[in-house]
């Protein structure tokens, strides 16, 4: 179980995340929704130790991230919002790095790499530099890397961007399979249909504030006949309906 407790992130005078408290149970697919700059990536980057929150704590199964950083990192596989990393390395070099960082036994790594490379049509490109790949192929290389250690917690920051339809489908299946094994999948997205299809629970952020935290079904039930898009835009859109937000906040708290 992952708990964010009163998490706050301030960049100079800009508040990116304001007093975020939420819990993500194990074995769920959890989605973060919100406009650009709402605080989704800040939350995910805080969880994976890329940024340091200004205040508040994050715990994973009761262990504070600050005190058990290395152990918690070992349990997390991360797909960043930009796949433009380690461009000088070949895909194989990158996976070697991941394997050594996560201390994956060689035979297990070989097996997983073969499966995942095959699935994402990357086997033939393993010895090419990541810098030579298209955006989508870079994303695939990073996804494969994140899954090599079979992490307890898989964090993906807008993972569908740049992927072809087949890869999107495969990725969604992998996310479902990963959660079905009792592992946690956390991702951010702008694609509401994807969130509706995949998420058990979701959080909606607006200007750094958490405005909804609960299940997708529960959210849909609050406005019968409305789509997730309609509800989302009412809550977080340009003309956000404060009353709706208050009602939904109430419903998510009462749950």
């Amino acid at each position: 179980m992952i708990e964010f407790n009163h998490l706050q992130k301030v960049y100079d005078s800009t508040v990116a995340l304001r007093d975020l408290s939420l819990t993500i149970p194990n074995g769920k697919i959890f989605g973060f929704l919100g406009h650009n700059g709402a605080g989704k990536s800040t939350t995910l980057k805080s969880l994976v130790s890329v940024i340091e929150p200004t205040s508040g704590t994050i715990t994973v199964d009761g262990d504070n991230l600050v005190d058990h950083r290395l152990a918690i990192k070992k349990r997390i596989g991360y797909v960043p919002d930009s796949p433009d990393i380690f461009l000088e390395l070949t895909a194989n070099d990158y996976w070697d790095l991941i394997a050594s960082a996560y201390q994956i036994p060689a035979d297990l790594r070989k097996k997983r790499q073969a499966e995942l490379s095959e699935l994402f049509d990357m086997a033939a490109h393993a010895d090419s530099p990541i810098g030579d790949f298209s955006h989508g192929m870079r994303q695939k290389a990073i996804v494969i890397g994140a899954l090599l250690p079979d992490p307890d917690i898989w964090v993906l920051d807008e993972p569908m961007t740049g992927l072809d339809p087949q890869a999107i489908y495969d990725l969604k299946q992998l996310m479902k399979k990963h959660a079905a094994k009792g592992k946690t999948v956390i991702f951010s997205t702008h694609v509401l249909a994807t969130a509706q299809e995949l998420c058990d629970d979701l959080a909606i952020l607006r200007h750094g504030n958490l405005i909804y935290n609960g299940s997708v079904d529960q959210l849909l039930n609050t406005m019968p006949n409305a789509t997730l898009e309609t509800i989302y835009l009412k809550m977080a859109g340009r003309a956000a309906d404060q009353q709706t937000v208050n009602e939904l906040e109430g419903s998510s708290r009462n749950d």
């Binding site: 994976v48 290395l70 960082a101």
Partner: peptide, 12 residues
């Protein structure tokens, strides 16, 4: 500029 890329990895 690759130091940041190592941050999420469980590296010493």
């Amino acid at each position: 500029k690759d130091l940041k890329d190592y941050l999420p990895l469980p590296l010493n």
